[in-house]
Amino acid sequence: MKSASLGFVVRRLAQMVPVLLAIASLNFFLVHLAPGDAAEIIAGQSGHATPEFIAGLRHDFGLDRPLLQQFFIYVGRLLRFDLGYSAVQQVPVISLILDRLPATLLLMLTAITLSIVLGVVLGVASARMRGTWVDHAISVGALAFYAVPAFWLGLMLIVLFSIVLGVLPSGGMSEIGKAGTGLEHALDVLRHLILPAITMALFYLALYTRVMRTSMLEVLSLEYIIAARAKGLPESAIAWRHAVPNAILPIVTLAGLQFGHLLGGSILIETVFGWPGLGRLVFDALLQRDMSLLLGILFVSSVVVVLANLAVDLLYGFLDPRIVHK
């Protein structure tokens, strides 16, 4: 099993190469479709640009070379994690992104954890109490939260918890001017994390609850569950120890598939809550029309999704030993 897993990881990593190349090509393609190249943008900012000046810039950027050559230079740069230079912020794109990535990952992982844990609990409860008012209430709630635009829900939660009740901060990641250390800082970040994480989690919570309910009902009707019942095992043990481990597999698949969706959603949530992550960076890049930054974010977030899919595949083999990665 061990060596098979290692081979699997290596093969999966090798499979990533064409995907990454394709992402790079798409980025390159988009850059060249954009009206006006980098030279024109910089020239436009400088205010008084002669055609000779622009031609000089084009030469400096290598924009006068054949397209294919430019593409190879671009890929070569990517291999060295060089995503270009943000002309607006005057910093390499990669450092801007790496600065913001941890905040986004913290938000996303919190939201994923919340939505999976609560989604499984509610889905199991709903399935076990099928047809009762609890089941109906959970189903209606799931249906509603599945239809809410998350960014709007976030704004409404701000109205309720920050403006009316005044119990939670409406934005940011920590209190300004309150440097704090260690635990104090962690608690402060946690307080700021609550609203954005819940906002982000609710949509997926709705989805996972519904999937878990269906999956649980399917598993509960299988023969081994009937056997467990005949053996006289208590119902809760049947549900949690015997049914859930099998019923949870679709959730894991779904969570992996949703990772890209979650990253996209974080643009909106972070904009609403002023959360200093990648999403907020996208919004700033949009305001300043910073295309190299936008494309860099598209590239990095695609890479993050590819890595997340790999992680889910490995987790899958761990959760379901019947799946052997050869």
Binding site: V282, I297, S302
Partner: peptide
Amino acid sequence: MAVTDFFLTIPSFVLAVVVVAIFQ
């Protein structure tokens, strides 16, 4: 299917944002 899977991998909302931003 390789092309399809590729488009499934890219975070769709981020791609939509970039496309709209580039083409106005």
